[in-house]
């Protein structure tokens, strides 16, 4: 079942930059898809179309076969987006308040909000920080807080925009473990990253973008050999092939 589909998606900024051009991509329910590409290849702009934050200049996004723009609130509920810079998506003064922000926007009753927040914090293992100031969390914990904020909306798809930037080794492992767990619990995962050696073992599919277009799309073990020409570091490929490309042992 195709959950999210881009059809001839093009976005041109007012200054004339064509950030993405004619993108066709169909994402199936339950898929774990890695989107790679060098800086400026249009990954973030693409991700922001997936939940309607940016409107395409031409083309469209379909969510369960229907135009996403038709019901934008539903789309934002169902398609969670974790931003590149997790500091700038913190809106609460305590960890719990921050997670409550989404459900409160949906006018969920206060007692229900409390329950959802507790569940979301439990899921990312941050329950003991509920009353703490989010700015005091570590980098990895901040990303997990962003995940909890998205989980509180009960999404089907979660899009991660370069979630490993600026994290140390334990931080990367923390976030990666979370990602894999979310996939196991039935979420569709779109992971934007160029750090293939850390993640590719978990992916069902590898998509590579270059200059706003999709240039590679297919099984990771088939596509991996072609990534270098698009400015992505080709990880060392040992005996275990793509299966060894993870920072989770």
């Amino acid at each position: 079942m195709i959950i999210l589909q881009a059809e001839k998606l093009t976005h041109k900024f007012p200054d004339g930059t064509v950030a993405i051009k004619d993108i066709d991509l169909a994402i199936s329910e339950g898929e774990f898809i890695v989107i790679a590409g060098s800086n400026g290849s249009g990954k973030t702009v693409f991700a922001r179309h997936l939940n309607g934050l940016l409107k395409p200049t031409s083309g469209k996004i379909l969510f369960f076969g229907e135009a996403l723009a038709k019901n934008i609130i539903n789309a934002r509920k169902q398609i969670g987006l974790i931003f590149q810079n997790s500091d700038s998506q913190i809106v609460g003064q305590t960890v719990a308040e921050d997670v409550a922000f989404g459900p409160e926007n949906l006018k969920t009753s206060a007692s229900q909000v409390a329950k959802i927040v507790a569940e979301a914090l439990e899921a990312v293992d941050l329950s003991q920080y509920a009353k703490q100031n989010p700015q005091l969390l570590s980098g990895g914990q901040k990303r997990k807080l962003a995940v909890a904020g998205v989980l509180a909306m009960k999404p089907k798809v979660i899009v991660f925009d370069e979630p490993f930037t600026g994290l140390d080794y334990p931080g990367v492992r923390q976030v990666l473990k979370q990602l894999v767990e979310l996939h196991k619990s039935g979420h569709t995962i779109v992971l934007i990253t160029h750090e293939l050696e850390k993640t590719l073992a978990h992916a069902d599919r590898l998509v590579v973008m270059d200059k706003g277009r999709i240039v590679l799309d297919g099984l990771p073990e088939e596509q991996i050999y072609k990534v270098a020409q698009y400015g992505i570091r080709l990880p060392e490929i040992g005996e275990r092939g793509v299966g060894a490309m993870t920072w989770l042992s």
Binding site: R48, S88, E104, N105, K107, A110
Partner: peptide, 20 residues
């Protein structure tokens, strides 16, 4: 700018859960 984007992507509206 980023904050606005992040708030919008979490369905920011002015009709929110009333405080209890």
């Amino acid at each position: 700018d980023e904050l606005i984007m992040a708030m919008e992507s979490r369905c920011y509206t002015e009709e929110r859960t009333r405080p209890v």
